[in-house]
């Protein structure tokens, strides 16, 4: 145990302090996000021109994971909480859709409210327990709670258990099957992604966000000036869980299938990789990281069925040979000094 872990409550001390605000902070981040969103908005045109409908399906999937990664960035990048169970919230959101539609409730608004409520409640309970600990404990406990949710769904044989469950149809809006069209689903996900990005930007810029960032940088000092880090960190954790639940709602609709495989701990690990790859604590980095990660994954899969080997090697090399982690390495390469 290092001396540092003694002082900082919850999460890993100093995880983000030397990485925040990196290459994509402030106004640059907003510009980068605007470019990404614009390109995404134009993508269906390209898909039509190239007569490649699969392009839009892939892009929808990427945006759904970008939404989940975005929410994880609030926890990981701004809260310095290394949460290793984030995929559980996606799964809970997806199962809210599956369970409700299997029982005849197909309206996406009802499903989304249920998904947000369920994932926020799960985040509230597990977060309140996990945040009593810090450092490696926090990582292991969030991982264990994620597994708990996973095993719950695996043994839920009424809704497919291990095999998963196929949705009878995509969700409807006030009875209209609007999302049956892939392009409509694409724009719905894009709209929610933009909304979440704008909302989270406002959150991290607010007083709440400043307290959260202050806690990340020096929890003891924040406590000394009268803030209770626990409440702020828990609030961020619950918000992130709820947003990931929304991602789950869309994932269920996109695949028209839900299974416990959505919430494996490997998936949680991949979400962390996306956020770190793109740059923690920047929001737009999480989106860029999700896009990059899933494209690399698809690209490696073309070459070999053993693409995970390549991914693993890439990951180890990036961490070992770029000082200060991946973002630190990218920053050094691009010549930007660290704050």
């Amino acid at each position: 145990m290092s001396a540092a872990s003694q002082v900082s409550p919850a999460a890993t001390p100093g995880v983000a302090e030397h990485r925040q605000g990196g290459m994509l902070a402030g106004r640059g981040a907003a510009m980068a996000a605007a470019v990404i969103f614009l390109l995404l908005a134009l993508l269906p045109l390209a898909a039509t021109a190239l007569n490649d409908p699969f392009l839009m399906v892939t892009a929808t999937r990427i945006m759904i994971f970008a939404l989940a990664a975005l929410s994880l960035d609030l926890v990981l990048g701004y809260g310095a909480m290394v949460s290793f169970g984030h995929a559980a919230f996606i799964g809970i959101g997806a199962y809210a859709v599956a369970i409700l539609s299997a029982n005849g409730v197909g309206d996406i608004l009802v499903q989304a409210i249920a998904a947000v409520a369920a994932s926020a409640l799960f985040a509230l309970v597990t977060g309140a327990i996990s945040l009593r600990t810090r450092g490696v404990y926090f990582i292991m406990i969030t991982l264990a709670f994620g597994q708990m949710a996973y095993f719950f769904m695996v043994s839920l044989s009424a809704y497919g258990g291990d095999d998963g469950i196929t949705l009878p149809a995509r969700s409807t809006l006030f009875g209209a099957p609007l999302l049956d069209d892939d392009m409509a689903l694409f724009y719905a996900v894009l709209a929610v992604l933009i909304l979440a990005f704008a909302g989270l930007r406002a959150v991290v810029a607010s007083r709440f966000g400043r307290v959260l960032r202050g806690t990340r940088d020096n929890a003891q000092r924040m406590q000394a000036i009268g803030f209770s880090p626990f409440r702020y960190q828990l609030t961020a954790y619950v918000m992130a869980g709820a947003i990931a639940g929304i991602a789950g709602v869309f994932l269920a609709n996109q695949a028209e299938f839900v299974s416990p495989a959505y919430m494996t701990w490997q998936r949680s690990g991949e979400l962390i990789v996306m956020v770190v790859l793109g740059g923690m604590g920047t929001l737009v980095g999480a989106i860029a990281g999700a896009i990059a990660f899933l494209l690399v994954e698809d690209w490696l899969a073309i070459f070999s069925e053993h693409w995970k080997l390549g991914l693993g090697i890439l990951l180890v090399l990036l961490v070992l040979f770029t000082r200060g982690g991946i973002v630190g390495g990218v920053e050094r390469l691009t010549g930007r000094s660290q704050p």
Partner: peptide
């Protein structure tokens, strides 16, 4: 990895799992 922060350790050892399982 000893001198790195926990996040780096998580990422590198996660990569190691992928490598060895595959």
């Amino acid at each position: 990895l000893y001198e790195r922060d926990h996040l780096d350790q998580v990422l590198a050892t996660f990569g190691l799992i992928l490598i060895l399982n595959e």
